[in-house]
Amino acid sequence: MRRALVTLYDADSADGIATLDSELGPTGRPLHEFPDPAPLVGHGPARIIALCNQKGGVGKTTTTINLGATLAELGRRVLAVDFDPQGALSAGLGVQTHDVPTIYDLLLGRGIDPRSAVQRTSVEGLDVIPANIDLSAAEVHLVTEVAREQILAGVLRKLAPEYDVILVDCQPSLGLLTVNALTAAHGVIIPLECEFFALRGVALLVETIDKVRDRLNPAIRLDGILATMYDARTLHSREVLERVVDAFGDEVLETVITRTIKFPDATVSGTPITQFAPEHQSSRAYRQLARELIVRGAVA
């Protein structure tokens, strides 16, 4: 078997890279070089992917931003939907969140064309629907609505023909907003921090996805579990990743996102890491993730 180089971030230095010569990747499986995909001959309808984990701080927003940017680099038309009242996705892409239509306005059905809420980003091919703190009131307003779990699906259905993929950045909870995202989605990616307490909640989230599949959205599937904030120097990170692979097997994505100070730096700049530090190992990791998802059929 060909031996591959795995580059892992050294958390003690802002730019330090440790190189491990190994036949296996961090997930304990043989590494693959996923090829660049062929250009698309047309666009749409979009496949909707929810990035979901009820635990906060596991890399949902970072993954939505950077996966969206790398898919756009590969010629895909991408819409990122900020579905978290904290508005971190909107801030991370440097878009306006006040005095403009947001996803909250679209959910409440105020007669607004969904296209009017779409904003361009600095990445060609990547658009965003922003959110702000107003979204925190949405669950109260939606609780008395008929088919309340399907409101987001109705909004995204109008935009799907114009995009190849729609990424929904969910809030860290399993409330009505997250159920709306799961009901609208064709697939789910679970970003999972390589830390024990993050691991504990995965079974509950998978159970929630199964319930949504049984009761609301038979087409939904788990596109993959993405290990994030991985530090190969710590036994704890390696053990958590090993346990996830043992439990979920091939549902764990081969690409692993390592811990780096570059992510918060890129967020402050309001740009994806692929623009902020295009040659950094983390940028290469997200490009690898985009290619892996295309190979797996999660993205056209």
Rank of each mutant, 00 (worst) to 15 (best):
K60F: 05
V100E: 10
V123G: 04
Q86E: 07
I65W: 01
R76E: 02
L93G: 13
G75K: 08
A117I: 03
L106R: 08
L106D: 03
L79K: 02
V95N: 04
S90W: 08
S122Q: 14
A88W: 01
G87F: 08
T64N: 06
T64L: 05
F83W: 10
Y104M: 05
G109T: 05
L67Q: 05
L106C: 09
E124L: 14
T102N: 08
R120A: 15
L74C: 06
T97A: 15
G109W: 10
H98C: 07
V100Q: 10
P85Y: 09
A117C: 07
G87P: 08
G87S: 13
I112K: 04
S90L: 11
V81Q: 00
R76Q: 14
L74S: 07
E73N: 09
G125Y: 03
I112W: 03
A69G: 07
P101L: 12
N66I: 04
S116D: 15
G68V: 06
G111W: 11
T61W: 06
Q86G: 07
L74A: 07
V95D: 02
V100W: 09
T70M: 08
D84Q: 12
E124A: 15
L126E: 07
T64P: 00
G111M: 07
T64W: 02
R76H: 14
T121H: 05
L107F: 07
R115A: 15
L107Y: 03
T70P: 00
I112S: 04
A80T: 02
G94A: 15
Q119A: 12
T62R: 02
T121Q: 07
D105N: 14
A80M: 04
L71R: 04
R76M: 11
R115T: 12
T64R: 00
G92T: 12
L89E: 10
V118F: 07
L106I: 09
G109C: 10
G68Q: 03
L106Q: 06
I112Q: 03
P114G: 09
D113H: 11
V81E: 00
D105R: 05
Q86P: 12
T102W: 02
G125T: 08
L93W: 14
L126T: 09
P101G: 13
K60L: 05
T61C: 08
H98V: 12
G92C: 13
G94Y: 14
R110Y: 12
G125I: 01
L67V: 09
E73F: 01
R115Q: 14
V118G: 07
G109R: 07
T97C: 12
V78C: 04
L71W: 01
R77N: 08
T97L: 10
I65E: 00
L126P: 02
G109Y: 10
A69V: 03
A69P: 00
V58I: 13
A88Q: 13
L79Q: 03
L74G: 04
